[in-house]
Structure formats: C-alpha cells, structure tokens
Amino acid sequence: MADGQAHTPNLAHHFDSMDQQRESSSLGMWLFLAQEVMFFGGLFVAYGVYRFKYQEAFAVASNHLSVAWGAFNTVVLICSSLTMALAVRAAQLGDKKRIIRYLVATILLASLFLGVKGIEYTEKYHDQLVPGPTFQYEPDFDQYAVPVTAETAHPNFAGHVHLFYSFYFVMTGMHALHMVIGIGLMIWLIVKAQRDRFSREYYAPVEMTGLYWHFVDIVWIFLFPLVYLVWRH
C-alpha cells in the first residue's frame, strides 16, 4: 500500500497521515460531546419544566442546599479545569514530567470535589431529603422569604420539593459519575505517560481527555447557579 508518509508507530493503518488521524479524533470527540450536551440536556429540560411549574417549591427546596459548599466546589472544579488545560499544554510541548504533575493535581482536585459532594449527600441523608420512600419534608415558610402564593398553599407542596431533590440527586449524581470516569481516564493517561507513550506528535489521548474534563466542568457551571442559587435574596 502506497502511503505518502513513512509510518509512525502511532499512525493507524487506515489513515494516510498524522494530521488526518488527529483531525478525525478531534472531530469524533466533539461529536461525542455534542451527544453529551443532549444527554444532560434532557435532564435540564425536565428540571426546567418543573422549576417553571413549581417555582416557589423549588425555591424553598433549593434553600436547603449549602451555597458555601456549592461555591467551594465550583472553585475546585475550575481549578481542576486549569490544571487539565496545563496538562494538555505540557503534552503539546512534549514535557512528560509536567503532564504527570498536572494530571495528578487534577485528580486530587476532582477527588476533593467528590469528597465535598459526599458530605453534602450525607447531610441530605440525615435531613431525610433523599428522594424515595424515606423522604420526609415539612415546609417551614417563615424561614424563607418566599411569598405565599397558590403554589405554597398547594396540598402537595412537599411532593414538589421531593421532585426538586429527585432532580438534584439525578443531575449531580450523573455529573459525579462522569467525574469518576474522568478520573479513571486520567489514571490511564498517567500510566501511558510513565511509559513514554506520548510525544509532541502524538498526544491525542491527553487532548481528548482534556476536552471531556472541560465538558464536565461546563455542566457544573450550569448546574451550580440553576440548582443552588434559586431565590437566595
């Protein structure tokens, strides 16, 4: 088979050049992310509809979340996005040591995020706000500056709060699951980097994992204000 360029070990047989291979994997990754947008998109639409229908209930429910923890986690995740971007930059420069160092930093930040998430989940468990048969909620309107409306007087107000928590757990849970997968990918990258698999010419796995990680960050960028920051004034 007459290939224009000499075969490098990282060039798959069905591609003609490293450029073609790199552009293909990049386009493939972006298509995957577009798919992910719609995957989370379904959740956001459902959440949006219920929030539209039950505004006061969702406001009251959201006020039981801790803005401090949420904001802290936002900062942690943005930091991890920075370290991830720097890991990709190190890969572009062919700096193996820095790739590993930044990836380890990203993993640590991600673990910190998940740890905080665990604390929050535990709190909700103690407050019996975990959705399902054990869910218990007595509305206490004096505590929050929510105006009394037809919605707050709704006999099923607690049910609507339950709905909020169903979405809170499904959405943050799905997000956390994506983070766990991301951590797995980064561990795999560190092993590959240790074995000198990456070079200035070939670092697509680092770059693709980077894209994935930034996407996870973006999901949180929307989750935080939409779930935590409802009716805080």
């Binding site: 798919q35 995957f39 459902a46 099923n156 339950h162």
Partner: peptide
C-alpha cells in the same frame, strides 16, 4: 448524535424512577 442521547436519559429516568421510587414522572408528587 443529537437525538439518541435524549431518549437514553429519558428511558434511564424511567428505570431510576422504578428502582428508587423517586417519582420523576409520578403525578402523586406533581
């Protein structure tokens, strides 16, 4: 690419609702 993930999450929500009884589409909870 743009459609399948939506049914994936929807059908997953049905499964989640059945397994954990979280009532995402349950009129009893609104």
């Amino acid at each position: 690419i743009l459609g399948t993930p939506v049914v994936a999450i929807t059908i997953l929500l049905v499964a989640i609702e059945r397994i954990f009884e979280v009532g995402i589409f349950d009129p009893a909870l609104g």
